[in-house]
Write a protein that binds this DNA or RNA. Structure first.
Lengths: 157, 157
DNA sequence: CAATGTGGTCAATCAAGTTGACTATTTTGT
DNA sequence: ACAAAATAGTCAACTTGATTGACCACATTG
């Protein structure tokens, strides 16, 4: 696999590969730190639970998946010790999902690893180009999802 | 969902969202053209089958999945009329997967749609910035996968 | 030409999602 | 005030795209 081979990749492949490359290294390193039971799909759920917890419905909307799917994911994360349910203060039907101490520790580890990878990327392409890259991607995502983000556009770590 | 909300997204989220945004529009439009039975996972398989066909093992290596998974995908694509098996010229065990006419037509449709989306993106951020974006992503993907691309780094359309 | 390797299939399982039916509460309209 | 409708969540069965393990037929190699 040489550099030339990559030059032929179109934008879709580039986005896909850069994303999966990042995710793969992240989860590899999380595994080494003892967080092997966290999978990519769990990441954006954590982002919504921080900082004050969230209900199942809120998580479902945020992730663009059904509440049943959220329910299963939450079950798994409770069993693995990353989150715990709290009784809802005003609604007896509802429950609020919050991070446990282990949950917070994996979020912290994730942030450190991502900062590290991003630093390596900056050393590779330069800080200015990295800034441009982020700006452009932000613009593209924003324009493409004008007023209707969420459903089906399901980000993961 | 306002622009400010996106500004807080980290690189991982940006890559994930720009990718899924692209894929989602692509498959939406393929559906409208009558290719609703093609799913994102099939895309990179087509890229390897073009132009001269490929064996199951070659596809498995290219996609970084097992030969059993390839076998199932091929079954589905044969049933849907996008590819067909040809007998291997020298190895009686093997078979070569090639595109049918319908296979070629969906590949062509895919390319037109992607070109169209990319054109819109260029109008949005400018041709120079698009060039930089591609260069930088190419660089990042290349550096990160130095000599070990493929397994687990599984690109799709 | 026997032993080993390789291309492919079958079957069972898993992960992450879906739809549909249901219960228990809460909110709303008259 | 209270019946009707909406909402939060669960249970169960199914789907898609993957996995592992066992196996068969053919190819390659000492």
């Amino acid at each position: 696999m040489n550099h030339q081979a990559f030059s032929e990749l179109d934008l879709t492949s580039l986005l896909s590969l850069s994303y999966s490359t990042l995710i793969y290294e992240l989860h590899d390193r999380l595994s080494e730190l003892g967080y092997g039971d966290i999978r990519p799909a769990h990441g954006f759920m954590f982002r919504r639970i921080i900082p004050n917890g969230a209900t199942g419905i809120e998580l479902a909307e945020h992730l663009g998946i059904t509440k049943q799917a959220v329910s299963k994911m939450v079950d798994y994360l409770v069993k693995s010790g990353y989150v715990k349910p709290q009784t809802h203060p005003t609604d007896k039907r509802g429950k609020i999902i919050v991070l446990t101490e282990r949950g917070w520790s994996v979020v912290k580890a994730k942030e450190e690893i991502l900062a590290d990878i991003q630093q390596r990327w900056i050393e590779n392409i330069g800080a200015e180009r990295m800034q441009l890259l982020k700006e452009d991607l932000t613009k593209l995502v924003y324009e493409a999802n004008e007023g209707k983000l969420s459903s089906k556009v399901r980000p993961v770590w």
